[in-house]
Amino acid sequence: MARSFALDLRSIFIFPSVFGGLFLLLCLCLFLLGTNYQNNLMLALCFFLVALFLINLFTSYLNFARLKISLGNTQHVYAGDDIRFAIWISQHSGEENTAHGKLQFRFWLQKDSIEVDVDSTQNPIWITLPTRRRGQYSMPRLTVSSYYPLGLYRCWTHLLFDHSTLVYPKPVPCEMALDYLSEDNNESESHAITRGHDDFDGLKSYQLGDPLYHVAWKQVAKGQGMVSKQFSSSQSSSGWLRLLPCSADNVEHKLGQLCFMVNQLSQQQVTFGLDLGSVQIAPDSGVHHQEACLAALATFTWGKHA
């Protein structure tokens, strides 16, 4: 289960920070000065700072070891957008004390780190990762570090979450190119006449729950009681979105267009199927269908198409 890490001895690195080095240098200076001036106050201060340095090793480590870092769920994004990973910071259960101080989060090979103050931040913390291409992005190694309490040590750990997310192609606005199903080659597809809004079909007595604008007000005015009009329509037609044969450098553009169309059609609740050559998704509609189509577009590889 690598979606949550409770930090412990084995996973934490700790080393004096640059400031810690400076601090030790300061202690050395104080020692030399105190010895040369035979100044006990200075020596006492020096020893106190050394003792503090030692104490800090443990304070720093114990504070960091109280952390539990979990990964929340991630939204899929379109290429070019940033993936936002939700990180939940919590304490080890059963711990009376809580972790404090600022934490730095940084993805491996990324320059920028984000800084979060554990004491004043609401979960979750969002860490973004820029994307350039579509496809499967596995979450890179995340380095979490802390300088609490006095900045003398840097505690850090590398977390490799077992998590990947899909990056869909960037939608490219285009003309709708839905390949409609013709009735003759797809007899089985249900085209039953259902109650709809298009054609007037007849009158029936009003029932509780019937829409008011279906009430035949003329009849009501004539004193015939509440009567509703009945309409019928044929189901909106469905079709296929197809990836037409194209050159390798054009395929990303086409996929972007398909992505745009999938989103448009899903918004309009149109039933459609997706045909990428190697991958085919049967006509359907709804959120899940949209997700499936987008996933197929994201993971599509050019080689298979040929």
């Binding site: 809004h197 029932q207 509780l208 729950g209 019937d210 829409p211 008011l212 604008y213 279906h214």
Partner: peptide, 18 residues
């Protein structure tokens, strides 16, 4: 007790009253 059958063309007013 009452029962409202929900349909795609049911308007709020049909349910709430007018």
């Amino acid at each position: 007790f009452s029962r409202i059958q929900f349909t795609s063309d049911l308007l709020p007013a049909d349910m709430l009253g007018v």
